[in-house]
Amino acid sequence: MTDRVPVLKIGEILLVSIQIDLEDEMVLDLQEDLSQKIVSAGAKGVVIDISALEIVDSFVGRMLATIASISRMLGAETVVVGMRPAVAMTLVELGLSLQGVRTALNLERGLKLLRRLSTAHSARP
């Protein structure tokens, strides 16, 4: 059995911190686990911390975009936080712009962004 990336629940937010070099199966498992947990926990936001990731290739990039789309469909906003400069420059060169994925510099800013989004959401008539 392969390892799974833990999904932590804090209030209405799910926190995923990727700490190891991911195998493709783990990436697919994470996508599955998160979709399940957004529904079961009634989450309003997802934060994915990739500050420990030394590379993000097109497979992981696609996973991030897919998770953002799935979670939006399930009523939760996803924020990807902590992307390293070298990773961002590589993704640009690779041709991946992570359209539709919200990003923040670090975990703290990611949480603030989610809070701001939910305030804006609840303020709507």
Binding site: V80, A88, M89, L91, R102, T103
Partner: peptide, 12 residues
């Protein structure tokens, strides 16, 4: 342009 896109991907 690439710099701007990279910064955006980092959340800036």
């Amino acid at each position: 342009l690439k710099t701007v896109v990279a910064a955006r991907m980092m959340g800036a």
